[in-house]
């Protein structure tokens, strides 16, 4: 259980890191489209600045999405079966876009600027897919234990 919690924290941290880095590059590309040039130094500083400024909000959004999604994936796999990894990848595909759309629906705005375009949402979602896949992969050994799953769906 502790290992699963640690891997959950790791995967959400990784997703946050990747989404933050990708978000910064999307925003800098937008700034470049206005005719301003971005040096490597500015890019690195901006990326670090976002890791300090944006990452806490991102972590909250991603971890809530992953927590709900991973619980659903676990029980869906137990009840329905199929490929366990794909259930978790499905969480990576859906959790971030659903979170963003829920906020848009409730608040009438999309707070993560990089996710406002289809391309931006796709790229940030890819970051979540990688992280969710890694979580599924790293927990696959313990998940395969009958005592953990409580049934033989892993077989």
């Amino acid at each position: 259980m502790l290992k699963t919690i640690m891997l959950f924290i790791f995967s959400t941290f990784l997703a946050t890191l990747l989404v933050s880095i990708v978000s910064t590059q999307i925003i800098l590309a937008e700034v470049q489209s206005f005719g301003l040039s971005i040096s490597t130094e500015i890019r690195v500083n901006a990326t670090i600045e976002d890791l300090l400024g944006l990452a806490p909000a991102l972590y909250l959004l991603i971890s809530i999405g992953f927590l709900v999604g991973f619980i659903i994936a676990k029980y869906a796999y137990q009840l329905i079966g199929g490929n366990r990894i794909l259930w978790y990848v499905g969480v990576g595909i859906t959790s971030f876009p659903i979170t963003i759309h829920l906020i848009q629906y409730v608040m009438g705005l999309t707070p993560i600027a990089s996710a406002r375009t289809p391309l931006g949402l796709f790229l940030t979602t890819c970051c979540c897919i990688i992280s969710a896949w890694l979580f599924a992969f790293l927990t696959s050994h313990s998940a395969a234990q009958p005592s953990y799953l409580g049934n033989n769906n892993e077989q």
Binding site: L28, I38, A46, D50, A55, A57
Partner: peptide, 21 residues
Amino acid sequence: WPAISYGIDYSGALISPFTEA
């Protein structure tokens, strides 16, 4: 706006690294 700004996004994200251009 939003090429230059003295503010940051509500999410804490950078809007632009520039305040003047």
